Amino acid sequence: MRHRHLPPADEFPVELALLGDPELLALYGRAMRQLERESIQFGAAEPETEFRLEELRVELDRRDSRDALKASKRRIRGLYGGIGSEPPDSLYGGDF
């Protein structure tokens, strides 16, 4: 059975971008439980736990930004009338 927390000795994915959202969120939850455990037991987190949490936060923030941009593009496209009626790419500031 897997731990409900993520000890520093446990494996950690090298490329978080390859994980699906459910897997990434589960890993984040395990890392947060590990942080809580270390804070209670030792009064501070292990550097590896802090590093992993930061990596997970960066990936989650990247996905949130990507999703927000996609939603914004859909809203803008809706203002321009739908299929075949696209605003200029310059309006988006680049495409993801």
Rank of each mutant, 00 (worst) to 15 (best):
K73P: 02
E55P: 06
S65M: 07
D64P: 02
A71L: 05
K70E: 07
Y80F: 15
D89P: 15
R63C: 01
R63G: 02
E59P: 09
E86L: 12
I76V: 15
P88Y: 04
L60I: 14
P87D: 08
R63P: 01
D67E: 13
V58Y: 04
K70F: 09
I83Y: 00
G84M: 03
R74S: 08
S85L: 04
P87F: 14
R66S: 05
L60D: 02
D61W: 14
R75D: 05
L69D: 12
R77P: 00
E55W: 14
E59S: 12
S85R: 15
R77F: 00
L79E: 12
Y80E: 05
P87Q: 07
D64N: 10
K73A: 11
K70V: 01
E86W: 11
S72K: 12
G78T: 08
E59C: 08
I83L: 00
I83W: 00
S65L: 11
E59G: 11
K73W: 11
I83P: 00
R66E: 06
S72M: 11
L60M: 15
G81Q: 06
E55C: 15
K70Y: 05
R63M: 03
D64F: 10
D61I: 10
D64K: 11
V58G: 04
R75W: 08
E86Q: 11
I83G: 00
R62N: 13
G78V: 06
P88Q: 02
E59F: 06
V58N: 10
R62H: 13
S85F: 09
A68F: 03
Y80N: 07
L69G: 07
D89M: 05
G82A: 04
R57M: 05
K70Q: 06
E59Q: 15
R57I: 04
R74K: 14
V58P: 04
L79C: 10
A68R: 11
S85P: 00
A71F: 03
R75E: 09
L79I: 08
L69E: 14
S72L: 13
L60P: 09
E55R: 15
S72C: 13
L56W: 00
L69M: 13
G78E: 10
R63W: 00
G82W: 02
Y80M: 14
L60C: 10
G78L: 04
G78W: 07
D89F: 03
G84F: 04
R75P: 01
E55G: 13
D67V: 07
R57W: 05
R77W: 01
G82F: 03
P87E: 06
L79A: 09
E55L: 15
I76L: 15
L79R: 04
G84W: 01
R63E: 01
S85V: 03
L60F: 10
R74I: 11
V58W: 03
E55V: 15
R74L: 14
R62V: 12
E55F: 13
L56Q: 03
L79D: 08
D89W: 07
G82I: 00
R75Y: 04
R66N: 03
G82E: 01
L56S: 02
G78I: 05
R74T: 02
D89Q: 10
K73R: 15
L69N: 13
E86G: 06
R63N: 01
R62A: 14
G78M: 04
D67R: 15
D61S: 14
L60N: 07
P87K: 04
K73S: 03
G84Q: 03
A71M: 05
D89C: 03
G81K: 06
R77E: 12
S85W: 10
